[in-house]
Structures are given as structure tokens and as C-alpha cells.
């Protein structure tokens, strides 16, 4: 059946059955390959996108659940190809190793910064807890988030 979904600010008509995970539609129908398939079970966070501004696992969110709601993927943070402050911070801190988890990390972190522009360390760590990185770049990821939260600070721990 045809379902209309709103992704990165525009409406898309997709041909899929309603229980199809949002992730499959994003990657295969809309060619938005930022969100990654990691576990498919909501355990790792590689597929994280924002639904109505909140971080959510797209692999366990069927498209039937997102009618009338807005989805943002990592591509949506840089609509004109210009990275936003958080993406730039990830680059500056070289927070990626293999990079597979990073789009999900950025989407979860951005949801936090949109709600609390200058979160404290505990809040950042608690918020990022659901997303995993197998390369072990967590310290750099945390640094990148701190940098984006306080872009003018001269000293970043």
C-alpha cells in the first residue's frame, strides 16, 4: 500500500506494507543511507533518527507508527551540504573510527542539544547510553558533544 511519510522536511509517498521498519524505507526507498542497520532489534542505536524531535530507533519503528509525524535523519542536519555545529564538532574531534555508529550518535546527541543546549556531563552520558560504538571512540564522541554544547569555550576537557 502507499503511505505518505514526512522525512527531512518533505513528504514522500512510499510503496510498502505498514509494518515495514522505517529504517528499510529510509535506506532502500528514499536512499538516505545515513541511518545504518546494526542489530535490527533496537539494541545498538546505529539506526537512530529523530521522530518529532526525539531520538528513536528506526529499525523497530514501523512506518505505520509515523503517519503525521516528522522524521529527521543525519542528512537533514545539513540540507545544503554544510555541516551543522555538532557534525563539525565530530569532525574536529575526529570522533569516528569505522564510523558505522556515528550517524546514530549524532542524531541522538542533536536531540539532546535541541532540548538542553548546555547539558552537564552526567546528562550527556545518561542520554547517550543507548547507543553503542564497537571501536571504542566514546571519549572522542563525548568530547565532540561537549564542544558543540560550548563552542566558544577555550578549554575542553
Amino acid at each position: 500500500m502507499t503511505i505518505t511519510i514526512n522525512v527531512n522536511g518533505s513528504g514522500h509517498q512510499v510503496e510498502a506494507s505498514p509494518e515495514t521498519p522505517l529504517l528499510y524505507v529510509l535506506r532502500e526507498d528514499l536512499r538516505l543511507n545515513g541511518p545504518k542497520y546494526g542489530c535490527g532489534l533496537g539494541q545498538c542505536g546505529a539506526c537512530t533518527v529523530q521522530i518529532d524531535g526525539k531520538a528513536a530507533f528506526s529499525c523497530v519503528t514501523p512506518i505505520a507508527a509515523i503517519a503525521g509525524r516528522s522524521v529527521v535523519t543525519v542528512e537533514g542536519l545539513a540540507p545544503k551540504g554544510e555541516m551543522n555545529m555538532l557534525q563539525q564538532a565530530f569532525l574536529t574531534e575526529q570522533a569516528a573510527q569505522c564510523g558505522y555508529c556515528i550517524a546514530g550518535m549524532i542524531m541522538r546527541a542533536q536531540a539532546l542539544l535541541d532540548e538542553i543546549p548546555q547539558p552537564d556531563e552526567k546528562t550527556i552520558r545518561r542520554h547517550m547510553q543507548p547507543n553503542l560504538c564497537r571501536c571504542g571512540t566514546h571519549m572522542r564522541i563525548l568530547r565532540a558533544i561537549r564542544r558543540a554544547a560550548a563552542p566558544n569555550a577555550s578549554h575542553l576537557a
Partner: peptide, 14 residues
């Protein structure tokens, strides 16, 4: 075992 949170995936009615 770890079950993910669905608070942001689903609406109340869902």
C-alpha cells in the same frame, strides 16, 4: 536481556 525504550517511537494510542 535489554529491551529498548519505545517512548519516542510510539504515540500513546499506538
Amino acid at each position: 536481556p535489554m529491551m529498548p525504550a519505545f517512548a519516542t517511537s510510539f504515540t500513546d494510542q499506538q
